[in-house]
Amino acid sequence: MLENIFNAFFIGGIICVIGQLIMDLTPFVITPAHILVGYVTTGAVISALGYYEPLVKLGGAGATIPLSGFGHSLAQGAIEGVKTKGLLGAIGGGLEATSVGIVAAIVLGFSMATIFNPKG
C-alpha cells in the first residue's frame, strides 16, 4: 500500500518536471493552455502506441492523475469503443470514457462560481 503511494509520488513528480523543463528551457512563451493541450494529446498518442498502460501499472495515480492520463483515457476509450460499437465507438468512445471527469469539472466550475468570489 505504501509502496504504490511512493510510486505515484515518483512517477507523478517526473511527469510534472517534464512540463516544467519545457516551460523553463524552451524560448517560447508557454501558457497553461499550451501545457494542458500538449499533455492530453501526447498522452493520447503514447497510449495509442501502447506505452502508457505499463506506466499506469507502475505508477498508479502518478500516471492517471496528470493530464496525460486524461489523454490515456481518451485513447483507450476510443479503442474500446471500436471493439464494442465499431465506427460509432470510434467517434464517441473517448469522451464517453472521460465524461465523468469533464462534467464534474464543468458542474463544479459553475457551483464554485455561484459560491465564491475571486480573491485576486
Binding site: C16, Q20, P32, I35, L36, A105, I106, M112
Partner: peptide
Amino acid sequence: FGGAGSMVPITGFANSIVSPAIEFK
C-alpha cells in the same frame, strides 16, 4: 510555487475551468 507541478495534474484542469468561471461572474 509549483508551476507545472500544479498545472499538469487533473486538479490543474479543474483550476483552469473554475478560475475563469469565478473571475467572470
